[in-house]
Amino acid sequence: MKVFVVLVLALASASAGLLPQIAPVHPKDRSAAFSIEGRITNGEKAAENQFPYQVGLSFTSSGGSWWCGGSIIDNSWVLTAAHCTSGASSVTIYYGATVRTSPKFTETVASKDFIQHANYLSLTVRNDISLIKTPKIAFSSAVGKIALPAIAGSYSTYVGDTAVASGWGLTGDKENAVAPDLNFVSLKIIANSVCQQTFGSLIVTNNVLCVETTNAKSTCQGDSGGPLALKDVLIGITSFGSAQGCEAGYPAAFTRVTSYLDWIKTNSGVSA
């Protein structure tokens, strides 16, 4: 199992605020002491067709398999996290599922059709974003795309806004059975300066967006790569959280989509 490298926290010579006070970990890489598959903790069950842009991603490699989420951004493109595609040989995409094991249809895609950011760096969670080129699909009430933010000269920080994350999996850190249903949770976006108090400025750069996780509501293992949406616009890709657990109350972090709009357009042709 690919385990996110825990950064050295005891370096006395490190600048204050540079390294994390709490180790970050990708949701898909949490140890068995917490969850081995994941979903939104303490969220709500999604209604049928509520999140038509949400896909489930079942990755395989020579060393095993893992589950992530993703977002449909066009009828032949899915956006997810680089830590999900990294090391995978193929992925089966679950379209239109509310019950995780009952999608409307699936497509299997080989790694040759993955476009992982060339500068993805797992150690500091840099450029945690990938595209998956898919067979052209037909949209319906159950399967559809989510809009990207418009390319602009400047963007909102979204601080104070409440966005919606969605995904499948366990209901909490101590659970050991995968929940069958798609769940969602509303999460308040916080300033990066606040998030840096937990994860440090080396990890929380301008390309990261963070949310607070009050009342043990958060993304969790298996939600990796899934969407964070604000008013039906994709603003974040589930990237990492605290190694202390999904319900520990520390911020959860996402790849900030507005930082990668040019990269997305260059590699897929897709824009708002």
Rank of each mutant, 00 (worst) to 15 (best):
T134V: 10
A12K: 09
L234P: 01
T213N: 08
A138N: 15
Q197T: 09
D223L: 12
V178R: 00
Y155K: 09
L11N: 11
W66H: 07
T198G: 07
S271T: 06
G172H: 09
T92M: 08
L57W: 13
A10I: 04
N183K: 07
C220I: 03
A248G: 12
K45G: 11
T124F: 06
A147Y: 05
G96F: 01
S89W: 03
T157N: 07
G38A: 08
G200T: 00
K28L: 10
I132E: 01
A81R: 01
E212W: 00
A163D: 06
A253I: 05
L123K: 05
S65W: 05
K145H: 10
K265H: 06
V8L: 15
I190Y: 00
P251A: 06
V270A: 04
S65V: 11
C220F: 07
S268F: 02
S35D: 08
T266R: 10
V257W: 07
D113F: 10
N267R: 03
G144Q: 13
N75R: 15
T85I: 13
T157V: 05
G225A: 07
Q50M: 08
N75S: 12
L57G: 04
T219V: 11
V99D: 06
T205P: 08
P20D: 05
S166F: 10
D74I: 02
V3K: 15
P27F: 00
C68F: 09
D232E: 08
S201M: 02
V194K: 10
V91D: 01
F114V: 01
S15K: 04
A97K: 02
A179S: 14
V6R: 15
A191N: 12
E44A: 12
S62L: 13
A138R: 13
T205F: 14
I203M: 11
D128I: 00
L131C: 04
I93V: 15
S65H: 11
A179W: 03
